[in-house]
Computed example of a mutant assay.
Amino acid sequence: MSEVRWGIIGTGTIAKAFAADFRYAKTGELRAVASRDKGSADAFAEQFGIELAMVDYFSLINSHEVDVIYIAVPHVFHFELTKACILAGKHVLCEKPFTLNQAQAKELFELAQAKEVFVMEAMWSRFNPAVEQALEWVEEGEIGNAQSVQASFGFALEQDPSHRLFNRELGGGALLDVGIYPIFLAQLIFGKPDFVQNQAVVGDTDVDLLEQLLLGWDGGQLASLEASIITQQPNRAVISGTHGYIEFDKEWYKAKAITLCKQDGSEHTMTFDFQGVGYQFEVEEVNRCIQEGVLQSPNHLWEDTLNLLSTMDEIRQDIGVSYPGEPELYEMDVEHHHHEHNHHHKH
C-alpha cells in the first residue's frame, strides 16, 4: 500500500507540536490542514510544508486527498468531529481525552466498528520508548511485583477565564487535560482501578484546577497521582515494586531516559535518543494499523480509552465538574461511590 496520507484539524499548540514531529516518522505523508481561520491554515501549511490548506473542517473530512485525520481542537469538539470523520469513512487519531465522557466514546467506537474505520485516542506517551521500556521491565519482573505508581503532571497558568483550560464551555480543567496522563500510566500498569478517591480544588469558572488522586486495586496496588493547571509540578513518575523501582526522567510523559533501581542499590539507566518530542511514534503506530487493516491499536485499545474515561467520569461526578450537554454522567448510581472521604475546596 502507498503512504498513508494525513490531514490535521486545528492549528493550535498541540497541532504544531504534532506537525513538527511528523517529519521524524518513518512512514506517512502530511498532506492537508484545516482551520476555520484562513490566515492560520495558510501559515500552518507554509510552516510545515503542507500542500493543502483548507478553511472548512468538512472540506478536509470529505477530501479524497487524505486517509486519516488527526483532530487537535478543544475537547468539547472531539465527539462531533470524530463522528463526522467516521461517517465520511476516514480513519481518526483524536487528541486526548478522546471524548468528554465514556458514553460519547462508546458511541463513537460502535460507529467505527460499523463503518470499519481505524480510530485511536492520541495517547502519544503510550508509544514513547521510555514508557514502552518501563512496561517491559514490569512485565519481565525486573522490580518484582509492581505495587505502586506515583506520578504528576501540572504547570502554572495565569487564571484567564477565556483560556481554553479555564473555560467550562471548552471542556477546561486539569483532569481531562493533564490528569489523564498519570491515570493512563497507573492503568497501563495495573488496569482499571477498583477504588477511586480524590481531593480537588474547583475554581471560580467551575473547572478543576488541582487534584490529588488515590487509585486502588483489589490486588493491593495503589497509585498516588497529581494534576494541576495552577502549580508547577515536578512531572516525575516512579513505578515501585517488591524488588526495586523504575524512575522516569523529568517530564516523564516524553522522557528520553529511564532508570531501573534495584533493591541492592544497583542502578541501570537506558537513554533513548529520538528527535523531537515523540509524536512520531503514534503516527507510525496509526500507519501500521491502517496498513494491516485493523480497527484499533493493540497497544492502546478502545477498551483502554473507555477505562480512562470511566475513571475520569467517576472523579468528575464526585467533584461536581460537568460540561455542557452531558447530563448522562449524573444518572449513574451514586450509592456506589465513597463520598465521605472526599472534601472539595473552592479556590
Rank of each mutant, 00 (worst) to 15 (best):
D273G: 12
P298D: 10
W252T: 07
L100W: 00
L93A: 13
S35E: 07
I50D: 03
H78T: 09
E95P: 00
D160A: 12
F248Q: 04
T242Y: 00
N198W: 02
V178G: 04
L93M: 14
F98I: 08
V131G: 02
T13L: 12
D21Q: 09
Q317A: 11
I183L: 07
E65F: 12
Y279F: 15
K256H: 15
C94P: 04
R236D: 11
G220C: 12
L209I: 11
H343Q: 12
I229T: 06
D67T: 08
I319Y: 15
R23S: 12
A237D: 02
I229D: 02
R36T: 14
T11L: 06
G144M: 11
L222C: 01
L215M: 03
E139I: 06
G144C: 11
A257I: 01
F155D: 00
V201R: 14
D208Q: 10
F274I: 08
E247S: 13
P129A: 12
H341S: 11
Q187L: 00
G171V: 09
I180T: 07
I50R: 00
A255N: 05
P97Y: 03
M1C: 05
G219Q: 12
C289G: 13
K250Y: 05
I8R: 04
E142K: 15
A19W: 02
D42R: 07
G219L: 07
F184C: 01
A43R: 09
F98M: 03
H339T: 05
N145I: 11
V117I: 11
Q47D: 08
H268D: 14
F190Q: 01
S228I: 03
H300W: 13
F109I: 07
T231A: 11
H341D: 06
V277T: 10
D318N: 10
T311Y: 05
F18E: 01
D218G: 14
W137T: 06
H268N: 14
I230V: 15
L308R: 05
H75Q: 09
E169Y: 08
D273H: 13
H78G: 07
M1P: 08
V76Y: 06
Y253A: 11
F195K: 04
W302S: 09
D204A: 14
D206R: 09
L87H: 07
F127V: 03
P324T: 08
K346Q: 12
A223Y: 04
E51V: 12
P129N: 03
S310Q: 13
N307Q: 15
L185I: 09
A146E: 02
A200P: 03
V76Q: 11
V117G: 07
I290R: 02
E110R: 13
